[in-house]
Design a protein around this nucleic acid. Structure first.
Lengths: 109, 109
DNA sequence: TTTATATATTGCAATATTACGATTAATAAG
DNA sequence: CTTATTAATCGTAATATTGCAATATATAAA
């Protein structure tokens, strides 16, 4: 008890959920938005920008990397992060596929 | 410690996260997909369909209702659930707004 | 009214998530 | 080599989520 019953669902559903979870925390959204607006890539400015502890930011970055929505390159002593273009479009598509599955108003209840 | 620092983020970010969280569990995705494919609306077929306990399904339905993505109408002794059309399109828009904010390939790292 | 059916709520238990300080690792600068 | 600087990892505490059994509620049927 207490553990998500992944065995009951399709691989697609489990995968989607895992990816969607990334958008389910404001800090990660803030990180993504910062990456979107800043032309250049970031590393630890996020700590200053967001006001969370360095370790907390690092953890969120790790989760974002885990689902491959961002990538980081080591540049000297710091790390430069940016959106992973391919994955970004893949996610866009996947969400659109879901949202487009509701075609016409069929208000039944 | 251990509590999401909502105070650090915008209302929009917090709101988006709360809504996105709904898509972050396969059971809720399965419920939504079942609602999408079944022409008619559902109530407790979900229990049979998904294989989760009735109380668990009920809880997920509650969360879906909390963010207004579904609505339920009492029909006799059972409840008929369906997608909330307006909210559905609103979510579609909100996610598209985010995804569209990555305009051109600017791979910087 | 009694009984059956359907759903919501309550009360746990197990696990996951969030956050932070402290420490570690790795490179750059002196 | 020593010292900053930056980011990752570890350990821990607080809280949230997930799931189920048991119970409560509410309507329908007899």
């Amino acid at each position: 008890m207490g553990v998500t019953r992944s065995d009951l669902f399709t691989e697609k559903q489990n995968g989607f959920a895992q990816v969607a979870k990334v958008f389910g925390h404001p800090a990660r959204l803030a990180i993504l938005e910062f990456l979107l607006k800043s032309n250049s890539c970031i590393c630890g400015d996020l700590v200053e920008e967001l006001g969370l502890a360095q370790s907390t930011i690092s953890q969120h970055l790790k989760e974002l990397k885990n689902v491959d929505i961002i990538k980081g390159n080591i540049e000297g002593t710091s790390v430069c992060y940016c959106i992973n273009e391919e994955k970004w479009y893949e996610m866009k598509m996947i969400f659109n596929e879901l949202f487009d599955r509701y075609p016409n108003p069929k208000d039944c209840c």
